[in-house]
């Protein structure tokens, strides 16, 4: 809207928006602040905001007691592995749907998305049994597979929406230029779809990182990722606010930073192309 906005109105907007923004962000801010307090300051009455003795002690304690690095590593492997595997399976499928659509393409896409809606709890026990049979319980491999399957519909869908924006003529040009199907996908489609693939990668990494049903129910000690790490603080350690805060900060920091950097790409993926 090419129109001059009065300074006064802009100030009101700014104050209002910052107020609401800070209010929404406050629980995270408070958690981060508390993680630098001592336990006593963390529950002091009245609460202290900024003027306390900043300490890193909680982080050291948390790391020492629960081996944060191991959980972090599990999270990275599980979220990263399931996402990358999902993309490898999804790229060819999305190529087919976007560039060689048939009358059934739409039905297949919708069916894929509908599998996403099966409530996990409904199939918990069968999966549990299968995992025991295959020796996948409490293994990273098992979780990589389950989370890959869980997010596969979303990955296919997102890639499909991005691929559809690429003009088919360019792929035909590659075909005329003598590229085989593999070369066409590898040298022409994939490089052109890099932004789309990147945001698909990011969103699904975040979804897998935060997934808290399968990761809690299919792991014990060995393969447990950060969701389980933090659930173990549920009680009685939850009463030690400073340590709880440090653990929480450690669990969410990687994804928070990643998410902030990629928020623009995330939006388009999240809407499944339903909102332009």
């Amino acid at each position: 809207m090419a129109r001059a906005v009065t300074q006064q109105r802009k100030i009101i907007n700014t104050v209002l928006a910052w107020g609401v923004g800070l209010l929404i962000f406050f629980p995270i801010l408070w958690t981060i602040l508390t993680s630098f307090k001592t336990e006593a300051q963390a529950i002091s009455d009245p609460p202290v905001f900024l003027f306390f003795d900043w300490t890193l002690e909680n982080y050291a304690v948390v790391q020492e007691r629960s081996d944060y690095m191991r959980y972090l590593w599990n999270s990275v492997i599980i979220a990263g592995g399931s996402t990358v595997l999902g993309i490898i399976v999804a790229v060819p499928a999305a190529w087919s749907m976007a560039f060689v659509p048939s009358t059934r393409t739409k039905d297949i896409l919708l069916w894929m998305l509908s599998t996403k809606m099966l409530p996990a709890v409904g199939v918990l026990y069968p999966i549990y049994l299968i995992f025991i049979k295959l020796g996948l319980l409490d293994s990273r491999t098992g979780l990589v597979i389950v989370l890959m399957l869980m997010n596969l519909p979303i990955i296919v869908w997102m890639l499909y929406t991005y691929f559809r924006e690429i003009p088919g003529e360019i792929l035909e040009a590659a075909r005329m230029d003598g590229a085989t199907l593999k070369e066409e996908i590898l040298y022409v489609l994939t490089p052109m779809a890099v932004p789309g693939i990147a945001s698909t990668l990011l969103l699904n990494f975040i979804l897998a990182w935060n997934e808290a049903f399968w990761t809690l129910n299919l792991t014990a000690a060995k393969a447990a990722p950060l969701t389980a790490f933090i659930a173990s603080y549920s009680s009685p350690e939850g009463l030690f606010y400073a340590k709880l805060s440090a653990a929480s900060t450690m669990a969410i920091a990687p994804i928070l930073i990643l998410g902030w950097f990629s928020q623009k790409q995330l939006v388009s993926g999240l809407t499944f192309g339903a909102v332009k």
């Binding site: 003009p167 003529e169 360019i170 590229a179 490089p191």
Partner: peptide, 21 residues
């Protein structure tokens, strides 16, 4: 015969250049 093997070259309406090259 697949397009690549026909020995023909095509210029498209949208030019169809590879934008990343």
């Amino acid at each position: 015969v697949p397009p690549a093997k026909r020995g023909l070259a095509m210029v498209f309406q949208s030019y169809a250049l590879y934008p990343h090259m």
